[in-house]
């Protein structure tokens, strides 16, 4: 079970003499149950790449395979693919439109041809997973705060019971508390329901804490594909492409340079850094 991209490229305006690539010759595979994060500065090709994964965008070159099948071949149901691979885009305001939250979340299941009862059951389940209080199901989605809107929007995708959930900057514009809440819910989804999560994010701290695998994009290409620990070891390379590592990584490296910590120390979270520092001090 996987989504695979085989040598995909996307060219703006293919008629132009000098080709401008949004994505250039990318191959990768994401398996069910993974927690992958895609990082890269604005314009590095992240949003183009995720749109290949559920067939919203057709690559100019290369193939997109879902469970081994080419999704752009004749006879392949793109609607079926979009049910299995859900994308929640950055701005929840771009999808909320119904008069009540419950109805809005039912929109996806109903598009899949489910009956009203079935759609409602799925919608209720999804809202519950996203911790939206039941008392607000009949409220208008436009009355909600930013963080709640985001949760309802994600529920709207979850209600279709996807195997893969792609989240484009789910925490942008939220305050720290709202940010933590959403990321915790997503982590729970990943381990309790086995839904693969593909998280596009700017926040290195979040990525370090939640993802198991990171894809680094630059200029339309994937330049690194590894565990967070390995990726953040190369924090100097990340800086050359406008990214950075979590702040604690810098602390650990600075301490290693002064000979305070051993050279191979590699920490990504505050908890880890504290442990390493205490180990040295208690010697």
């Amino acid at each position: 079970m996987s989504i695979a991209l085989e040598h995909v490229s996307y060219i703006y305006d293919p008629d132009q003499k000098v080709k401008k690539y949004a994505v250039r010759d990318v191959s990768l595979e994401i398996k069910k149950g993974e927690f992958v994060s895609i990082i890269g500065h604005t314009g590095s090709g992240k949003s183009t790449l995720i749109q290949f994964m559920n067939g919203l965008l057709k690559p100019t070159e290369g193939r997109v395979l879902f469970e081994g099948q080419d999704v752009f071949e004749k006879g392949f149901s793109l609607k079926g693919l979009r049910q299995k691979v859900g994308i929640s885009f950055q701005y929840p305001d771009n999808q909320l439109f119904e008069s009540t939250i419950l109805k809005d979340v039912m929109f996806g299941p109903k598009n899949l041809g489910q009956s009203r009862e079935e759609a409602e059951t799925n919608a209720r389940a999804a809202l519950k997973v996203m911790a939206v209080p039941e008392a607000s199901y009949d409220k208008s989605p436009f009355e909600l705060s930013g963080g709640q809107k985001r949760r309802v929007a994600i529920a709207g995708i979850l209600a279709m019971n996807p195997d893969y959930l792609i989240l484009d900057e789910p925490t942008a514009g939220l305050d720290p508390e709202g940010r933590d809440e959403i990321l915790e819910l997503i982590r729970t989804l990943n381990w309790s329901q086995g839904i693969a999560v593909i998280l596009v994010s700017h926040s290195m701290e979040d990525v370090a804490e939640y993802a198991k695998r990171i894809l680094v994009m630059n200029d339309g290409q994937i330049i690194m594909d590894d565990t967070p620990r390995e990726i953040f070891k190369a924090y100097r390379d990340l800086e050359t492409i406008g990214l950075s590592a979590p702040q604690v990584t810098y602390i650990a490296h600075a301490l290693a340079e002064k000979g305070f910590l051993p050279y191979d120390t590699n920490v990504m979270t505050v908890e880890e850094a504290k442990k390493e520092i205490l180990k040295v001090l208690k010697k």
């Binding site: 508390e177 850094a273 205490l278």
Partner: peptide, 20 residues
């Protein structure tokens, strides 16, 4: 007050709590 401090501040605070 629902605020989250930068990692360096948090780390310093955690270390002080451990008696450093």
């Amino acid at each position: 007050h629902h605020m989250r401090v930068p990692q360096v501040v948090e780390l310093a605070y955690e270390l002080r709590k451990e008696g450093v």
